[in-house]
Simulated assay, not measured.
Amino acid sequence: MFKTIFFYRSKALLRSKETMFWSLLFPMLLGTLFYFTFTNILEGEGFETVPVGLVDTGQYENEEAFLGALESVSGMDDERTDEGSGDILFNVTKAENEEEAEKLLSEGKISGYILLGEDIGLVVNKSGYGATIIKSFLDYFKQKMSTVENLMEATAGKITPDQLEEALQTREYVKEIKVSEESPNIVVNYFYTLLAMSCMFASMAGVAEITGIQANQSPLAARLNIVPAPKLKVFLGSAAALAVIQTAIIALVFLFLALVLRVDFGKDYLLTMLTNIAGVITGISFGTAVGAVLRAGENLKTGICSALVMLGCYLAGMMDVQMKYRVQANMPVIAKINPVNRLTDAYYSLYYYDTNGRYWQNMAALGIMTLIFLTVTFLVIRRQQYESI
């Protein structure tokens, strides 16, 4: 009986256009959209050299010191180059007078210009990234010069060059400890959430499975209830077929994301596949629990189940990656009981961390959730009785 149910249920699932679309084609289409939307988002975050003008009137007292400091962080050419190297802070254009600098500024060729007169001045026509960087550099230089003047005054000019260098040295009091060789990448979270959503979409098929053995839901379910076989055995055969088909579908989605779209899932694809299987089983058990508990038609159950999955996707950062971190910071309990978030975090753990401690925590949480969902399902369907069929 189990083999017969497994075989024919597998054939029915493979012929289901709805299952093929939502579980296979829809994630691939959405993943392709994510790829074209986010693929170059991190490349655009690279540092850009700031174009700045310099007008030197020869009246600034510490002109030599300032020019030395500016030269150390910039490419000081007599003629302006339109492309910065990306390795320097400023691309400096020397102007003969303030009128020439004003022209460059009005034409947008520089973000601002530095005026070396009796003091250091900065002229910009609008606030922004470039103006902020220039001002920060000038403030830093002025602070250092003020420190030098105070030290010279306090020591009556007797401070040695080595002592002065030691006093001006910048020290780091915060040590960075890397937990991974990989660089943090928030973009992959969108793809991980997409794969987690695909796994949890099995919940809608799980609703159909549990509805299929409820005699008050359809004539087919009524006929199954009069079959001389335990209802639990019928359910397990059908659920096993669903788990196998859904796992195969998720494997195809995963391979599409990893091999075609080049999404980085880390180096351990076996554990990634194990996560896929755990996600499918969690999704199916979640759907069966919803279908067993709710006393409504199959369409309403499926709609409620779909809404809960999409809410979980939103809270896990699928639509807004910052939502994931806001939930973890302000509602940690929601993050812990959200299966989509657990799956997403499991994928990210394999990608980012060098150890698998956090990964196994997520897998254990998914196992506990699955056990709870299945227990609820079995308790409910075991007690369901029908006066007539």
Rank of each mutant, 00 (worst) to 15 (best):
F2Y: 14
F6Q: 02
Y8Q: 02
S10H: 03
L29R: 05
L30H: 10
T32H: 08
F38E: 05
F38T: 10
N40G: 05
E43H: 08
G44K: 15
F47T: 13
P51Y: 01
L54S: 01
D56Q: 01
D56A: 04
Q59H: 12
A69P: 08
L70R: 07
G75E: 14
D78A: 03
E79V: 00
G84V: 00
F90E: 06
E98G: 11
K109W: 09
K109I: 07
I114K: 04
L116F: 01
Y129D: 08
Q143K: 15
Q143N: 15
T147A: 15
A167N: 02
Q169H: 12
Q169E: 14
R171H: 10
K175G: 07
K175R: 11
I177A: 13
V179H: 15
V179T: 15
V188C: 11
Y190P: 14
C199A: 07
M204D: 04
Q214C: 12
A221G: 02
V234W: 09
L242K: 14
Q246Y: 14
I249M: 06
L257K: 10
L261I: 03
L261G: 00
F265R: 05
N276F: 08
V280R: 08
V290P: 09
E298T: 14
N299I: 11
G303V: 02
G303M: 05
I304E: 10
M310N: 14
M310E: 09
L315V: 03
A329K: 11
N338V: 02
P339G: 06
V340E: 09
Y353R: 10
Y359D: 01
Q361D: 11
Q361A: 03
M363R: 08
A364L: 15
I381V: 06
